[in-house]
Design a binder for these strands. Sequence first.
DNA 1: CCTCCTTGTCGAAACGTTTCGACACATGGT
DNA 2: ACCATGTGTCGAAACGTTTCGACAAGGAGG
Lengths: 325, 325
Amino acid sequence: MPLRRVTIHDVARAAGVSTTTVSEALSGRGRTAEETRERVRRVAEEIGYVASAAARSLRLGRSGALGLYVPDRTVGFEYYVQLARGAAEAALSHGMALTLVPAWDNVEQLRALHIDGLIVADPAVGDPVLHVLRSLPVPMVTVEIDLDPSATPVGVVHADHLGATAALLDHVAAAGATSIAVLAPGDETAFGEQVRRVCADRDRVRVFDIPLAYRPEDATAAVDRALAADSDALVLIPDGSAIVALHHLQGRGIRVPDDVLLASYVDGPSLQIARPRITAVDIDPRLTGEAAVQALVDVVVSGHKGAIETRVPAVLNERESTRRG
Amino acid sequence: MPLRRVTIHDVARAAGVSTTTVSEALSGRGRTAEETRERVRRVAEEIGYVASAAARSLRLGRSGALGLYVPDRTVGFEYYVQLARGAAEAALSHGMALTLVPAWDNVEQLRALHIDGLIVADPAVGDPVLHVLRSLPVPMVTVEIDLDPSATPVGVVHADHLGATAALLDHVAAAGATSIAVLAPGDETAFGEQVRRVCADRDRVRVFDIPLAYRPEDATAAVDRALAADSDALVLIPDGSAIVALHHLQGRGIRVPDDVLLASYVDGPSLQIARPRITAVDIDPRLTGEAAVQALVDVVVSGHKGAIETRVPAVLNERESTRRG
DNA sequence: CCTCCTTGTCGAAACGTTTCGACACATGGT
DNA sequence: ACCATGTGTCGAAACGTTTCGACAAGGAGG
């Protein structure tokens, strides 16, 4: 019952060549005659040869797996699921696996994961798990800039938050807002820091604090503060918080967009499910995941030297929550 | 700079024993003197030895990775994220990695993942990717029963949907509902099939169809049909649909719970964020993920024979959406 | 003293790749 | 004829584990 696995030796025997030739023919390295190469490929296919990842890893000293660490927030699931999907697909298309890295602070066990590279989504200053992860001897790419001064990732992929925030504020202003409240997290992430920088440059825009890993009460409290300050437009930055705000506003009998305008930063399916649909900036998380994998592959397998920076585009999705009339 | 890795030979030399002894001491197999065992452990720790996963895999013929496939739905993210987290943690605590399996239908590439076992979340009859996955030569555990007759997973972990549905319906009835509309998916999943079975046994309970992978319009349409049939309580089965329904009801000016009662089947953070908070049955997805990994580990590493069935508990979380007065 | 069993240790083979260096042969220039 | 160069192929070593079978030492029982 447990059939012996088909090895490269079987292919070699069946094709009448050496294992060296098989290896070179299949990988495209070395100098093999085109005719031989073709024959070997056909034979391999025929007898169902799949190279052993273990043997290859052992020889190459690479595990063939990339790790993905996503922080343990209470919200923002949609974003991370899509990010993970994009990353997993990109990894597989490069012949690598994407391994989920749990929020674990035991170095021993994390080392046992044997990954060749690590993707960290939304690194936050002070995350203890992240601190441990940084001590792993593998290259790391962050999605969004890591503000920790001790961090030296080999790559960063991030959206143009400066531009996107500006576009969002312009849009809300154009929609008739005269006093805009931006509910933003602090500067423990580059994201929050950049948003705040844009806001600081503008008149009639005030920033209200909302924790990065917020509880619903945090969000509603921030909304109340903004309303008390006579804001007529609310821009919610953290993923998922716009929904909370909408519920809260509707609970208080405040109409959107008639009484106040509402916009979100991070887009996602739930914003299109909500009524009214909520205006948001779409930063495609799948693309982001793919880019992160690409950067890591460049470093790990292609041996790229030096830092890699990838920018993913942001698109403003204008919806009913900022449309009056 | 690229330091040579610390191997078992280094440990052997440093401890003055053979590699055999090191291997046996660290793994606890074989018959090693307790004193030697202790010394080897200390030395290994000291010089920072981490066994090579690749070498071990090669020798053992196991990759040390479990795969997780989650269907590509438009909703239900929270559930799957928690499931994945639980599974990843459980896997790591067994010294294995959890690999994300993308929704890909290329057998070649999927084989290249080299996983020892596969967890499939919510198998749906007719899923083409699932069909391909079944042809992989690895044991498979499903979360929820696979209704496909050609499916023969080695394990199933599922909640007591029969009991949970009954409890939910009882609760809603006790809260004052006289005509309960249950919005449930069809019987392409065991989940839907079981819910329908419970409903069929009851008076004053009608079932309305809602696709498993629903778009928001599908959900709102089903809600409208239920309301047109004079229902005074809505029980939404698919994950995430209760939120859509709540938005829709509020948009139509219908108050919850005053005008109609609302309850969800799958619980999640967003149901506690909503206003009013929505009653739901909590089936802890983390526990579910852990159980799935446990079953797979039993089969793959401990060589368990025969089918494994694990039941995870369900708890009714009563909230404001079904509380009148 | 010889045999038998137990206990602790070890040498060496095997797992399946990739790749270095060598070899054989052909080609073309001197 | 000889050498230099280029092309296609291959043997064998190496990657780091686990484990089978063997061996030595020590006691128990005859």
